[in-house]
């Protein structure tokens, strides 16, 4: 049996490079999902904050569905659903074609819709914290609806929503672990392969867990930096 140090070395003998490749996949998935989820979440929050009841209902249906489903099930629904759907479409043209859906994109879409349903709630409560007078002030100095949103409301909205969004980023980072179930080579999947080959499951799953912990620590340091930067701009206003 090899020693733990050899197993954890960088290169063909050890597994550290493979697991760090997994960490790279995990981080890029989370970073790719974040803008998607925040953008959809913002528009869903706009709909739920609207005075128009049909828009509110449409937004609430979205949140209810994607907040109520288990994340793992959402992932499978999108991964296998897209596969089945596209397959049956392609079969009309070429009956022998086999379709393989990209697991990175599936993971991005699934985690994105889950993130967006939570983000829409964070944005919604931030919208409600902004007084009506801010909109009225914007209109009274001749700004259009879009300009009022961009120049008056949005800067305040981001500041109020930031703690909630930071929390969602951590949740997103943890949820990326689920994509190992659809075959994406993230931290957990690479650790699983290493554990099976070397028969050292505790070592490698322990390492994987510690890497997630490290990512969480780095994130909270980053979040503190961002919050300080945003707080400073509030001070000089």
């Amino acid at each position: 049996m090899q020693s733990a140090l050899t197993l954890l070395s960088w290169g063909p003998e050890g597994w550290l490079d493979d697991i760090f490749y997994g960490a790279y996949i995990t981080v890029s998935l989370a970073l790719a999902t974040l803008p998607l989820g925040l953008l959809i979440g913002f528009f869903v929050a706009l709909a739920k904050n609207s005075e128009e009841p049909t828009l509110r209902l449409a937004g609430n249906i979205y949140t209810t569905i994607f907040r109520g489903l288990p994340e793992l099930l959402t992932l499978f629904l999108i991964y296998f659903g897209a596969q089945t759907g596209i397959q049956s479409l392609v079969k009309l043209i070429r009956p022998d074609a086999m379709i393989e859906v990209n697991s990175f994109v599936s993971g991005m879409v699934a985690l994105g819709v889950v993130l967006s349903s939570y983000a829409s709630e964070v944005f919604l409560s931030a919208f409600r914290a902004i007084p009506r007078g801010q909109y009225e002030g914007g209109y009274s100095i001749g700004l259009s609806g879009f300009q009022t949103m961009r120049l008056v409301v949005l800067p305040q909205l981001i500041r109020i929503a930031l703690p909630g969004l930071a929390n969602l980023w951590l949740v997103l980072l943890l949820n990326t672990a689920l994509v190992s179930a659809i075959g994406l080579s993230d931290i957990l999947r690479q650790a699983g392969i290493a554990a099976r080959v070397t028969r050292e499951p505790f070592l490698f799953f322990g390492l994987a867990t510690l890497i997630y912990l490290g990512l969480a620590v780095i994130s909270s340091i980053g979040v503190r930096q961002v919050e300080r930067a945003v707080g400073r701009s509030e001070g000089t206003r």
Binding site: L170, L174, L188, A208
Partner: peptide, 11 residues
């Protein structure tokens, strides 16, 4: 709270 539940379960 800082590590995925799936990783804890596997561990």
């Amino acid at each position: 709270r800082g590590t995925p539940l799936l990783a804890q379960t596997f561990l």
